[in-house]
C-alpha cells in the first residue's frame, strides 16, 4: 500500500466562538490518485473538512483543532496556506467570489506570479491550462463576462496552473445549469484519470458520484458514518434514506424491484446501465 496523500487522524475541530465541534473524531486516509466524493446534509461538516486539507483550518480560521491532518507528509497546522497551495487546490461553489482579476489570463496568472514563475513560462502554462479546462482563446475576456460554467472552469484553471497534486471542489456545480455541471464533472474525471490527480468532490449529485468516484465518504453531524466504494455505500439505500440523503435513482429502483420481485443475483446497480440490464433480466425472468 502506498503512502496515503491525505490522512486524518482523530480530528476534532471546533470553530472559534462556538461550543459544539463541527468535526468529531474524524479518521480516514486517501491514496494518491483517488477520486473521493464527500456526501452529507447541510451543516454536516463537509466544507469544514475540505478546509482542513489545505490548512485554512486551523491556520487562517483559528479555532481548536485536535488530532492531526497530514497532507503529502506535512502536518497542515505547521504550514501557512500559501505553502499548502503548492499541494492542494481548492475551488468553492460560487466561482464569481473567487475572481479578482481583469482578464482570464491574469486570473490564471495570479498563483504563478505569487510563486515567482518567470514570464516566459507563464506564457506557456496559461494557454495550456486554459486548453485543459476548455477555455482556450479566452485569455483576454473579462472573468465577470463568462457563463457560470465557464467561470467555474476558470476558477479550477486558476488552481490547476499551480500544478497541485490534490484538487478539492466544494459543491462546484451548485450554481450551474446541467450543461455547466457536466462540463465541470467531465473535466474533473479527466484530470483524475489522465493526470492521476487526487480529486475530492463535495457534492449532492449522487448520480454523478456513483459514476465517477472511487470512494464515498458520508458525513453526518460532523462524524464519518460511512466510508467505502460507491457500490458499497449506495447499496445501503434504506440507511441513506433514513439519513435523508439522496440515493442514485438506479439503486432506489433496484431496491423497490427487489422487495417486489424477491432477490436476484449480483450487486445492487447504482448507475443507469447496470440498472437497465438488471430490469431486463427481471422482465425476461417474469416473461418466461
Amino acid at each position: 500500500m502506498p503512502e496515503p496523500i491525505i490522512a486524518f487522524d482523530a480530528v476534532t475541530y471546533t470553530y472559534a466562538g462556538t461550543d459544539e465541534p463541527a468535526l468529531h473524531e474524524i479518521s480516514f486516509e486517501i491514496q494518491p490518485g483517488e477520486y473521493v466524493a464527500i456526501l452529507g446534509l447541510n451543516g454536516a461538516g463537509k466544507t469544514t473538512l475540505g478546509l482542513c486539507v489545505n490548512g485554512v483550518i486551523p491556520t487562517m480560521l483559528g479555532g481548536e483543532l485536535e488530532g492531526t491532518v497530514t497532507v503529502g507528509g506535512l502536518d497542515v497546522s505547521e504550514y501557512p496556506v500559501r505553502e499548502m497551495s503548492k499541494l492542494v487546490g481548492v475551488v468553492f461553489d460560487n466561482p464569481e467570489f473567487q475572481m479578482s482579476q481583469m482578464s482570464v489570463a491574469e486570473e490564471v496568472a495570479l498563483g504563478l506570479e505569487n510563486a515567482g514563475v518567470p514570464y516566459e513560462e507563464m506564457k506557456r502554462i496559461i494557454p495550456d491550462t486554459l486548453e485543459l479546462v476548455g477555455l482556450a482563446g479566452f485569455e483576454e475576456r473579462s472573468p465577470l463576462g463568462l457563463s457560470g460554467g465557464q467561470q467555474q472552469r476558470l476558477a479550477i484553471a486558476a488552481v490547476l496552473a499551480m500544478k497541485p497534486q490534490i484538487l478539492i471542489m466544494d459543491e462546484p456545480t451548485s450554481n450551474l445549469d446541467p450543461i455547466g455541471k457536466q462540463e465541470v464533472f467531465d473535466m474533473a474525471a479527466r484530470l483524475n484519470s489522465e493526470r492521476g490527480m487526487t480529486v475530492i468532490v463535495i457534492e449532492h449529485e449522487v448520480e454523478v458520484m456513483a459514476r465517477y468516484a472511487d470512494r464515498v465518504i458520508v458525513l453526518d453531524g460532523g462524524r464519518v458514518i460511512m466510508n467505502g466504494t460507491p457500490q458499497e455505500i449506495f447499496s445501503r439505500v434504506e440507511e441513506l434514506a433514513a439519513l435523508k440523503l439522496r440515493v442514485p435513482e438506479a439503486a432506489e429502483l433496484a431496491t423497490i424491484l427487489r422487495t417486489e420481485y424477491g432477490d436476484w443475483d449480483g450487486p445492487v446497480p447504482i448507475t443507469t446501465e447496470p440498472a437497465v440490464a438488471a430490469v431486463n433480466d427481471l422482465l425476461g425472468a417474469t416473461r418466461d
Binding site: 485554512v56 487562517m60 496556506v81 497551495s85 481548492v90 479578482s100 504563478l112 506570479e113 505569487n114 515567482g116
Partner: peptide, 18 residues
C-alpha cells in the same frame, strides 16, 4: 481571501508579473 491565500497570495518570495 481564502481563494487568494490558496493561490499563494501573501508569500514572501520573489514575485513575477504576467
Amino acid at each position: 481571501s481564502i481563494s487568494l491565500e490558496s493561490r499563494g497570495f501573501g508569500s514572501n518570495g520573489i514575485k513575477t508579473s504576467y
